[in-house]
Amino acid sequence: MLSKSAARAFFLVGTATCSAALIGLTVDSFARIPGQTHAEKITPAVARGKDLWDSSNCMGCHTLLGEGAYYAPELTRVYDRRGPAFIRAMLRDPEKMYPGQRKMKNFHFKESEIDDLVEFLEWIGKMDLNGFPPKPDLVPLAVPMTAGTAFVAKAGNRPQIFNQMCIACHSLGGQGGNVGPALDLVGDRHDAEYIGRWLYDPLAVKVDSKMPKLPLSKDQIQELVAFLSQLKSEAKP
């Protein structure tokens, strides 16, 4: 039968071995982390962005690297997903960007602070995270392939600005947000001229529109008009 001194020895040796192993692995990890996270790209702006991230307790709602609270979106790849223009607009006035939705506090950041946060998120987005976040692998099963949407469902056909900004609130082919109406067949409902005016300033077209005026350049609007106006049901012979 196990004696008390043997039990104590098991505890002491096990703990000492594991502690030594953890410290050893930590030393090795610390040597590798700078390479894996591109630490050379941590500019003063990135460092200031991290300070703002911490001092505003962004993790109290969002996750970053999968860590934080589960009330607001995961932001690890937000720089690629939404693009800097969207992030800036969001930080200036969160409620305007997601009208009537789950609310984010307006922190009243200065423009320079918004720059720092964007730089911080850009740096985070470039890290090698061993495959996180995972790519959704059931999308082809879940998206109904109707005749009218089949050819636009491929992300490659879409302008980048559409995939970053519009999709945050609108869906196309079953993918995207549900804040605004789905954009399938929007070309049947509106012509290019109307879509152009709408994108330039939604409130000028419809006074009670909930969609904000977005930070879009003329070229981006043209690109979006060309894309959206061809989302039509196939012409009947």
């Binding site: 039990a7 703990t15 594991c18 982390i33 860590e67 495959g131």
Partner: peptide
Amino acid sequence: YVIVGLTFLSGILGTGHHYYYIGTP
């Protein structure tokens, strides 16, 4: 002793389950 021994045997290196996806090897 046996129980706290088991705790540390698994728990100390078990810290690693937080190090999968945060930019670590």
